[in-house]
Amino acid sequence: MGCIEKLDYEVLIRHASFPEAAKYIRAHCAEAYEVRPGFKIFDKAMIGIPPVLIGIDADTLTFPFTKPCHGTFLLRVEDATEAARIRTKAKRVKP
C-alpha cells in the first residue's frame, strides 16, 4: 500500500486548499480525525498544513493528498483495514 496513486481512489476536489479540505470533511463525513503532517496513511507520510483532517464513513476514508506540481487533491478510498487503523491512531474530532 506504499503508493497512493495505485489505490482505487475517487477525487472529490482538485487543487483544494487545506482549510477547504478540512471544511469538506467536517461537513460531509460521519467521523473526522485530526493528525499532524507526517502521519502515515496507506504507509505514506501525509503532507499538509496542521492540523490535517481525515474523514471516515464506514470503511471509506476521505483525506488530502499533495503533490509538488499538482497541488492538493481531496481523495476518497475504501479500505476497512486502514479505516480501523486511523480510528485507533488518530484524534477523533467529530462527532
Binding site: S17, F18, R36, P37, G38, A45, M46, I47, G48, I49, P50, T66, K67, P68, C69, H70, G71, T72
Partner: peptide
C-alpha cells in the same frame, strides 16, 4: 512558490 510548497515546508517543520 505554490500552495503545495507551503504544505511541504509545514510538514518538514513538523517531522
Amino acid at each position: 512558490h505554490n500552495e503545495a510548497g507551503v504544505a511541504y515546508a509545514a510538514t518538514m517543520a513538523e517531522i
